[in-house]
Amino acid sequence: MPADGPVLDVAGLNAAYGEAKVLFGIDLCVAPRQIVACIGRNGAGKTTLLRCICGFVKPLSGVVRSHGSDLIGLAPYDVAKSGVKYVPQDKKVFYDLTVRENLELGSYASGDRNWEPALNYFPKLKVHMDRKAGYMSGGERQMLMIARALLGNPRLLLIDEPTEGLAPGIVSHLREVFTDIARKTSLVIVEQNLPLVCAIADVVYAIRDGRVAAMFSQRSEMSFQTFEKFL
């Protein structure tokens, strides 16, 4: 697989659910070790964008490349195997499986038996290894999903609304974790939590009605007041 080019290059992406068009020519670029945030109102098309990238929604047209390889047309499991992992919004882990079994699933699929780096981000999981994931709190489930996605050292993580409904303490922990993860792995985070976006994002895309309304890459441009206009 060619290692050159951006970790993610989305160009002119159009997508629809049946007759309803949702994305209109989205362009987005993610460089190595970069944290890219997508902000916007509910229904703006942020989740659809992530689902197009990870192969769950077939776009009408456009380009999705990772390190020069085309991702369009790949099945979701092949996209995951190529190193682009998706952590969905709903925090629904496999609730009948234990934490260990959830991690084993990720481990076996990625061929990565070393859980230490992923578990070091979330030491709390080590205590609950034999607990059924369904009995964990929302924050712990989010930790488990991120830890599982980190197995196999993906080159890109797509994380949908990671802090939604979580306690402030966990949000601040996740903030540190995302900054740490970005030393090796690029991140695309769909997020409405503007303080978090301001604190960690290198680039912010504001999405409105399925289009990129604005793109911010300078620290000086990133402020709560600027982003609030897009929510």
Binding site: C54, F56, A75, P76, Y77, A80, K81, K85, Y86, V87, P88, K92, V93, F94, L105, G106, A109, S110, R148, A149, G152
Partner: peptide, 8 residues
């Protein structure tokens, strides 16, 4: 769906 996100 989630099983596919993991790579199965």
């Amino acid at each position: 769906d989630k099983l596919q996100f993991i790579g199965y």
